[in-house]
Amino acid sequence: MSHEAPVIGVLALQGDVREHLIALAAADAVARPVRRPEELAEVDGLVIPGGESTTISKLAVLFGVMEPLRARVRAGMPVYGTCAGMILLADKILDPRSGQETVGGIDMIVRRNAFGRQNESFEASLDVNGIAGDPVEGVFIRAPWVESVGAEAEVLAEHEGHIVAVRQGDALATSFHPELTGDHRVHALFVDMVRANRAAASL
């Protein structure tokens, strides 16, 4: 097993890229922005940040990142999506904008802006399976929720009866934004997933 820090990219087409880079570095990964297919090829795992899912999806198609990204996720590259990133990792969107594509990877159906507009955006603490210690501070901003998950997907957290964190194999998704809180435990979980995936691949 390699003891070098894993290299984890943050899809940097639009969104809160900087906060994810900081959180990943704090969780002992080598973090770098990814905008191009050749940059994607060099990372062990990828975070899809919060932002506008329609914008990120359009730019990913336009600049030829969407197909390579789908291929890598199918091939088992670990991915973590927050908010817009969760929408992009869903196999199905309940209410897509016309032509809105996703990367897919998690057998779940998401509802965009399910918790409402900005006036309804909120903070609440959550227990997240796999995160030890105090509850996680959940920051929900025009956040989606997960309507339903398939048999392979594991629900990690709920808020008021709605699914807000899901894991399927090496794919992780949260409706909320751990990158905005300074608590890096969810990022540490993902970095561990990337480490384990890399160790398994090098056997």
Binding site: Q14, G50, G51, S121, V139, F140, I141
Partner: peptide, 13 residues
């Protein structure tokens, strides 16, 4: 955090 965080989501746009 929710107000400022909203603007963080708009970055790069």
């Amino acid at each position: 955090r929710v107000k400022r965080g909203m603007a963080e989501q708009l970055k790069g746009g």
